[in-house]
Nucleic acid binder design. Structure first.
Lengths: 153, 153
DNA sequence: TATTGTTATACTCTATAACTATA
DNA sequence: TATAGTTATAGAGTATAACAATA
């Protein structure tokens, strides 16, 4: 083993502490993000899963199987979630003319409106970001991209 | 309405796009974080909630009510989660000599070991961070702190 | 035969309310 | 009376397996 200086050891320890602090901060953000999302959904009488599906369908109609892929869950679960959204008039199932096995779920007018309002209500992440300068937001964007292994774009 | 330059409008639009991109990146991180956490828990036959409670108790023993506070759920839910952890020998309930109403849940030796291994397996957030220089990690830390409205510390 | 969506089943998490044993 | 924990209950999300309709 090569001998190393005390300084090298001290630097490693500081690095580890710094990394750990950033990891903890990210955990805090994850926690806050979820809390706010669930609370916003609850304001409209929706569960988190229902709100997520509604948000997906507000962007574009999707076959049941595609919803399951987006949610990373089994297709059988989607049946119940869409059932509940449909019972409240926020979503509807349409046949696919090209393949009669497929049912395409789509947000209704009311569903799209609810999705919009819900999205507008999600102030966390958007509000604190407003306090950062454009340069800081760019710096944050670039660092987050690198964390996600995304190209510099 | 005061007249404004095209440049001002263009800047606002770019700002909004930037903010939205950062928000989407954060959503991606939240999603990844959860996926990895659930997958790591599943490797040990634990649900996400069970893994979170075990992680809490590996740090320090806690009365049932304190666990509920940390999880932000009703105390009645904790009974079942701790029941399942206890049935697997990962956690045990101890009496509190100072107040005989209280039951203190604590990780067993096996539980602490599982919690350690689980924590070590959570590479997301830690691994990509290793690719950032100390200066970049400090920059990220400061930006995240500001997002969380935390003092510069 | 393979695929889409559903149903049936079982388990977990969740909140609410009622209960017990302490304080 | 108030508090800590539990039990009972009901609703929702989840995975697995089996099924009907369609490809």
């Amino acid at each position: 083993m090569a001998a190393r200086t005390d300084t090298a050891h001290a630097t490693e320890a500081a690095d580890a502490a710094l990394t750990r602090e950033v990891v903890d901060l990210i955990a805090s953000i994850v926690s806050r993000y979820h809390e706010e999302y669930e609370a916003a959904a609850a304001q409209y009488g929706l569960t988190g899963a229902q709100a997520r599906v509604l948000a997906l369908l507000a962007r574009e109609p999707l076959p049941m199987r595609r919803i399951a892929e987006q949610l990373k869950c089994e297709p059988s679960n989607v049946t119940g979630i869409v059932d509940r959204l449909e019972a409240r008039g926020l979503v509807e199932r349409r046949p696919d003319p090209a393949d009669r096995r497929v049912k395409v779920a789509a947000a209704t007018e009311a569903g799209a409106q609810t999705a919009d309002r819900l999205r507008s209500g999600l102030t966390f992440a958007r509000e604190p970001l407003a306090g950062l300068s454009a340069q800081e937001r760019r710096a944050l964007r670039d660092l987050l991209r690198r964390m996600l292994d995304m190209p510099a774009g």
